[in-house]
Simulated assay, not measured.
Amino acid sequence: MTDELVVHEDDIVAAERMGLLEVTQQRDAMNMGYDLNDPEEAEAYRQAQEVALFVKERIRDINPVRVAIAGLILLLLVGLIASGWYWAIPRDDVEVHTVYMQRGGHLVMTELQNDGSRAIRDVVVQVQFLDSQDVLIQTMKVEVDVVKAHSSLAGDDLEMMILGYTVWDEYTLRISVRYTMFDNSQNLMEVDHVVGSYASEIFVDQVETTTRLF
């Protein structure tokens, strides 16, 4: 009597499926640079698969609402840092804006802007109008006790009209600013601008800035 080997159909299907899985794993491992025939590399491949599965599960658990809240908190922190620099940290930041125009003469208008976080004291702003030979033609000068933080100084006293001088010549605007900073030190700026070649010009002069963190 001849012995017969009986193989159930389910066993054949399971074996075929296992073979496909092994082939897929082999191909995946080769793409990642692992040799599953090497026990150490096979173990490294297994650990890499576990890490990948862990990362996928964590990503799946991420709540979009929590991400949005975290982003909002980050924006608030950035805003607090920026506002601290702008308002709280002692900072000296002064600019002088001057407009020159030819309007039946020479019109000069000046504005001092205190963009710093502290007031400045004993403020003196002077603008001189000189000819090409450096001879003074006209001047305007303003002295005030205090210019508060994030405010400006302007008005009629910082405007002057020079009449009786041709608009075809070159002239010099000599602008000077002096004041006391928050740390009681003096700050001074003097700058010259040649005008007359154009009917209108705008100048922005930045006084040297100072910031004290401690």
Rank of each mutant, 00 (worst) to 15 (best):
I81A: 12
V51H: 07
I81C: 05
E111M: 04
V51E: 06
E201N: 11
E41W: 01
K141V: 02
V13P: 07
R121Q: 11
S185A: 05
L53F: 11
I120F: 00
L163M: 15
E111Y: 00
V55G: 08
G155I: 06
M181A: 13
D92W: 01
I120N: 01
E190M: 12
Y165H: 15
V51G: 01
V125G: 05
K148N: 08
N114H: 02
G79S: 03
H8P: 03
L72H: 13
L21G: 15
G155A: 02
A42F: 01
P64I: 05
M101Y: 03
V13W: 15
H8L: 13
G196T: 10
N63C: 05
E170W: 09
G196N: 13
I137V: 14
M140T: 06
G84M: 03
T180M: 08
G105D: 04
Y179N: 00
H193P: 07
I12G: 01
E143G: 06
S200G: 07
L72S: 08
T139E: 15
N37F: 10
R174P: 00
I81F: 07
A52F: 08
S117L: 00
D156F: 07
T110C: 04
L5T: 08
D38E: 03
L5C: 09
Y198P: 10
Y198V: 14
N114E: 02
E95G: 10
I120G: 01
M189E: 12
A48K: 11
A119V: 01
A52Y: 04
G116M: 00
M101I: 04
L107K: 03
